[in-house]
Amino acid sequence: MSDELTFHFDVDGENFTSAGHASVKVKKILRELGLDPETIRKVSIAMYEGEINMVIHAGGGEADVSVDDKGVTIVLKDSGPGIEDIDKAMEEGFSTAHDNIRSLGFGAGMGLPNMKRYSDEMNIESTVGEGTTITMKVYY
């Protein structure tokens, strides 16, 4: 694979039930491309947590995934409230999610740590009041 393949998804922020839809699609695409299962799993989990975050914290956003000969890059961009203290947000267990989110199975403060765990590189750019862009790379 020398050419770069790119995929774009809109992530609907209104609907928790459909959250994760883009990640499921990406997983399917990567399988069809024949990537190794370990890479696929890392990409899917990292993207899924990021997608859930865009829905529960930022009112939705956009996801761009690109695949080249070195690995997979995921860019998650939203125009939500932004993250005030990124170091704090990265701590396991830190969460500003409401109880109703916790009753849906998320909001344990493990999302960003999981994204970090499964990606080989992760970069968060966030401005309060403007939004957040998270870039993750998973190498083969």
């Binding site: 039930t17 994760g20 499921v24 899924y48 849906l104 199975g105 998320f106």
Partner: peptide
Amino acid sequence: LTGLVNAQVIRTAEMMD
């Protein structure tokens, strides 16, 4: 094994293979 019933349970399991 879970007591939670929603679409995210299935997606989570799927993401984890």
